[in-house]
């Protein structure tokens, strides 16, 4: 039977493809700018925000996006000052996750109607359970964010590779940083709906890391990162459909990890790519 004839599969493909493309493109800039650890932290924030919304009885996505975007813009405004202290970030990360546990308990004890799987879905995602409305909404938000990112991608690339020269050339570096992080926050919210709060780092970081192993020029690497993310989601969804024992979040992560492992091996065999990896500006 054709897997595409199931509505749940169509919705998963629609949401999964757009979210993966967004995550791959955003992830490329995050790796380039050395902000992967912020993504790790955003996953904790996404969890706490989602459960706070559930505990308050409002739409989950409201808390999710509010928390991730606020947090990301906050980091961006703090600038380089806050990123220096890994001990501070580690402490804050642990505490934010602890807050998430607090809201989870509030949610499960004070709402008798609540379903116990909500927590698992927030943590590890449930892309097969996404409804038609949610899928279209997620795709629309992803489309807007992709358009926004592509619109600022040229100055952003310049500012990421050489902030000082970019600033001298009149690129608004101080404005681009927080704006990009706001997009990152929204992307984290989107990715969290597909693969769950705990695994969103994989969807954002892995395709970019893979692309950097394979491509030397920035624009091809960026396109490759998006394509790899989409491919991993398609492979993951197909595998999860074929083998019902595997949850889709796991198969997507496995596909991403396999891509990365293959690319790392491939690069080791051709060491010349290590040298001119960050080639030059376009």
């Amino acid at each position: 039977m054709d897997p595409l004839s199931h509505p749940y599969m169509q919705h998963a493909l629609l949401a999964g493809t757009t979210i993966a493309l967004l995550a791959g493109l955003v992830g490329y800039f995050m790796v380039l700018r050395g902000q992967v650890f912020s993504g790790d932290m955003l996953s904790h924030v996404a969890y706490a925000g989602s459960l706070a919304a559930l505990a308050a009885g409002v739409d989950l996505r409201l808390g999710l996006f509010a928390a991730t975007i606020t947090f990301a813009v906050g980091i961006g405004l703090l600038g380089g000052r806050a990123s220096a202290d890994d001990v501070l970030i580690g402490n804050a990360m642990a505490w934010v996750l602890g807050l998430g546990v607090f809201f989870m308990t509030l949610y499960t004890t004070h709402r008798a109607t609540s379903n116990s799987t909500a927590n698992v879905n927030v943590l590890f995602g449930s892309i097969f359970g996404i409804s038609a409305v949610d899928a279209w909404l997620a795709a629309a938000i992803a489309g807007v964010l992709i358009a926004l990112l592509l619109a600022i991608s040229r100055p952003l690339l310049f500012a990421s590779l050489d902030p000082a020269v970019a600033a001298a050339a009149g690129v608004p570096v101080r404005l681009l940083g927080p704006l990009f992080l706001a997009i990152v926050g929204a992307t984290a919210g989107e990715a969290s709906q597909a693969v769950g709060a705990l695994l969103l780092v994989g969807l954002i970081a892995a395709p970019a890391a893979t692309a950097q192993c394979l491509a030397t020029q920035p624009w091809p690497a960026m396109a490759l990162s998006g394509a790899l993310a989409v491919a991993a989601v398609w492979v993951g969804l197909g595998l999860a459909y074929a083998i019902p024992a595997f949850p889709p979040s796991f198969t997507i992560m496995a596909a991403l990890a396999a891509e990365y492992a293959l690319a790392a091996v491939a690069r080791r065999r051709s060491p010349r790519m290590m040298v001119n990896r960050h080639a030059a500006l376009p």
């Binding site: 050395g34 705990l198 780092v201 994989g202 890391a209 950097q212 992560m253 990365y260």
Partner: peptide, 15 residues
């Protein structure tokens, strides 16, 4: 890309 690799491994372990 080193932390990106570590992030990938972490996410895969959780999955």
């Amino acid at each position: 890309e080193q932390p990106a690799g570590v992030g990938t491994v972490q996410a895969f372990a959780l999955a």
